[in-house]
Amino acid sequence: MKIALSLFVVALALGAYFFFSPFQSDEEGVITIEIHDENENLVARDEHPFDKDDSLFTVLDEHYEIIFEERYIRPGFSGKILLAIDGVETDFATTFIYIEKDGKKALYGIDDLPLEDGSVYTFRVRDVE
């Protein structure tokens, strides 16, 4: 009984874990980066190729002047926070850089947001409400 219960819960947990984990990036492709300033003016729109070793952070770091900060909150809640990209700056107190993927709010940060061939990643300055 214990063995059956353990196997059942582990199988359920594995399924749920992979379902809720960030989706995997494509092996390679091309993404578009759009950067808007605080007045919503488009300051950059470029296409960049990526491969399986890349993350959104490595692509940004390679092609743009970025300022970021490592934030640790607790295990499971830590990562890089983007403070500036190509001169578009935020202080993360009154404004922050809002990330969209294909026009929808990104649910992960620059560390974990998966790279998908053909996707558009948009960076906008938003006020902290």
Binding site: A13, F20, G76, F77, L107, Y108
Partner: peptide, 12 residues
């Protein structure tokens, strides 16, 4: 959403 995978690990 970000914490769910860790909650699954802790629960299991």
């Amino acid at each position: 959403l970000a914490d769910l995978p860790f909650e699954i690990i802790m629960g299991t």
